[in-house]
Design a protein around this nucleic acid. Structure first.
Lengths: 112, 112
DNA sequence: CAAACACTTGAACAACCGTGCAAGTATTGT
DNA sequence: ACAATACTTGCACGGTTGTTCAAGTGTTTG
């Protein structure tokens, strides 16, 4: 086993055990990555207030339909939002309240 | 003012008000971006268990000193960690318990 | 002082990301 | 059926990101 500078074997084992499994870690990184973009963050914040169709989101953000649609796809693949058709329009909403919570947690940190 | 499809003026105003200010939003995105990388996430997880020098972190992660050092710099600029010299070695630690909390929140979401 | 060790830094590179554009699909209204 | 509207998709482009490598700084030890 490798040698450590400030750690004995027991501490090293404890540290290694603290790391989540590879797949969990990768999933966690992917989750945070979704929140790590201004446009996606804006979309999620709006959706935490209610449901919106693509073009209303785009107008509220001053972005193109295309840009918004691209990001909605990413967010949906990440299971952070869901969508349903309503006539001509497609309505997006947060997938669950957990997402709202994560958003709040981050905001609290920023306004420490 | 722009027209909306599913929103009246009142709803649109309420939605717009839900968006944090530009600088807050950008800071929030930057914060999440820091958590959105496997290596940084591993480092933060380890640091949530105690203090580590660069080379012990590198050994625990199976990464090069350089790669770890680069990421430590990013994390430090983001005020998520702090460091102090201790002889030949530089010891890193979480900046505050808030960081630990954010990490836990994310993990809870992944293990819904 | 010189060698060894711990760490940092800058440049270079490939990989990834967000957006705009143009063309596509789906639904509604005439 | 046709036009209009709402949205999606693939591609191309510029910009960012994470890593490696090599050279650097700072500290301790012989």
């Amino acid at each position: 086993m490798a040698e450590f500078l400030r750690l004995d074997g027991v501490q090293a084992d404890a540290a290694a055990r603290a790391l989540p499994s590879e797949p969990v870690l990768e999933e966690l990184a992917s989750l945070y990555k979704l929140f790590g973009d201004g446009t996606r963050l804006r979309i999620l914040t709006l959706l935490s207030e209610g449901e919106f169709c693509v073009c209303d989101l785009a107008r509220l953000l001053g972005a193109t339909d295309s840009a918004v649609s691209h990001q909605l796809r990413v967010l949906k693949q990440g299971k952070l939002i869901r969508s349903r058709r309503e006539g001509k329009v497609i309505v997006y909403a947060l997938a669950d309240d957990h997402v709202r919570l994560l958003l709040q947690n981050g905001l609290e940190h920023v306004n420490e």
